[in-house]
């Protein structure tokens, strides 16, 4: 314990051992960038859930025939469709990258703050890079 406030973070495991529990962020006191990135993972997850409706529409239209496919094809080429597709790719790559960091965190690695700060730059860069790359290959 380095700070007297750490005493709030004491808890017991199911075995009865004393452990230090992680403390939830106090949103009303401060909000840092890593917290925004964390909630961003959930928001992009929800956005991707909505996006699955378009995916199902696409597959069902493809199986239904040429005229049904033409309508989904038309929708995706309207400004709204392009905006949705761009948002979908950006959300997908963000969720993808943060998800991989979550899997690394689950192994107990990269949990310290310097690693978190380093990896967030990698995540934001990779998200931008993968999104741009996807659109460059698609449009060229």
């Amino acid at each position: 314990m380095r700070d007297v406030r750490d005493v709030q973070m004491l808890g017991r495991t199911s075995d009865g051992r004393l452990v230090q529990r992680p403390l939830s962020g106090h949103l009303s006191v401060y909000l840092d960038f890593d917290m925004v990135m964390s909630v961003g993972h959930r928001i992009t997850g929800c956005a991707l859930a909505v996006g699955t409706i378009v995916l199902v529409w696409f597959l069902v239209a493809l199986a239904s025939g040429e005229s049904a496919y033409a309508s989904v094809s038309w929708f995706l080429r309207t400004p709204v469709g392009y905006f949705a597709l761009f948002g979908w790719t950006a959300a997908l790559w963000y969720h993808f990258c943060v998800g991989i960091r979550h899997l690394i965190w689950d192994t107990g690695r990269m949990y310290d703050l310097p690693s978190v700060h380093r990896s967030r730059g990698v995540i934001l860069g990779a998200t931008a890079g993968l999104t741009l790359l996807t659109w460059l290959i698609a449009l060229l």
Binding site: L62, F96, I100, L103, T134, I137, A138
Partner: peptide, 24 residues
């Protein structure tokens, strides 16, 4: 599921990108 979705997502997006503008 997230582990399985890593390769599946890469494959799916790569396929979609290649199919962009392709006829029905």
């Amino acid at each position: 599921t997230s582990l399985a979705l890593i390769p599946l997502t890469l494959w799916f997006v790569f396929s979609l990108v290649q199919l962009t503008g392709a006829p029905y």
